[in-house]
């Protein structure tokens, strides 16, 4: 009888926000499902990709990266509407699994690798080697705690607290915009 509830994205829209700036495109990714996973003493390590502290791993459509010294985040594209945590928990008996899908807002930045790397210089204080493809890091971005994931050379995933998605979008979009203008000015010099 009850009509299902209609979700809104972290930026408050009914559809994900997408915006292109020169060589780079920003997209809100509300389709991404997240669950944290921390092995407990009684359990054993599940058969999931569980990479080292600086890495981003993928197997069977499940991405994974470390969140703490003892825990990982499991990420899947296109599965936000599932009870993702319950499915991961079923795969990981004896692990503490917590739903995190709506704890985070993901902004994807795609485009030229060189432009992405220039963008990262303006966002996070990390050696670029830590953000090469296949790497993940948690750090501060404009005073916001964020995960920075690099699934591919031309692809960057930024995960920030859902509640500050607007501030995160602003920070990234503005940095991209400044880069585009500066490059155009340099070209004229």
């Amino acid at each position: 009888m009850a009509e299902p509830l209609i979700p809104v994205t972290a930026l408050g829209g009914t559809a994900p926000k997408v915006q292109g700036f020169g060589p780079l495109t920003l997209s809100e990714r509300p389709d991404v499902a997240l669950a944290s996973l921390a092995p407990l003493r009684a359990g054993q390590l599940p058969d999931l990709p569980l990479p080292g502290p600086k890495d981003l791993a993928e197997a069977g459509g499940l991405w994974s990266f470390r969140t703490t010294a003892e825990a990982w985040m499991i990420l899947a594209e296109g599965r936000a509407e599932e009870d993702f945590a319950a499915r991961i928990a079923a795969l990981a008996p004896g692990c503490a699994v917590t739903e995190q899908t709506d704890g985070w807002a993901m902004i994807e930045v795609t485009g030229e690798a060189a432009a992405l790397e220039r963008l990262l210089e303006k966002l996070v204080n990390l050696d670029p080697a830590l953000l090469a493809p296949g790497h993940a890091a948690r750090t501060a971005l404009h005073h916001m705690g964020c995960f920075v994931l690099r699934p591919g050379a031309g692809q960057l995933w930024l995960l920030g607290m859902r509640s500050s998605a607007g501030s995160l979008w602003h920070a990234v979009a503005q940095a991209v915009q400044f880069q585009v203008v500066t490059l155009a000015e340099r070209a004229q010099d």
Binding site: S36, A38, L40, T67, E70, A71, A96, T98, E99, Q100, T101, D102, G103, W104, M161, R162, S163
Partner: peptide, 9 residues
Amino acid sequence: QLISTTDAW
């Protein structure tokens, strides 16, 4: 094990 769920719910 601990994790914040403030934003998730």
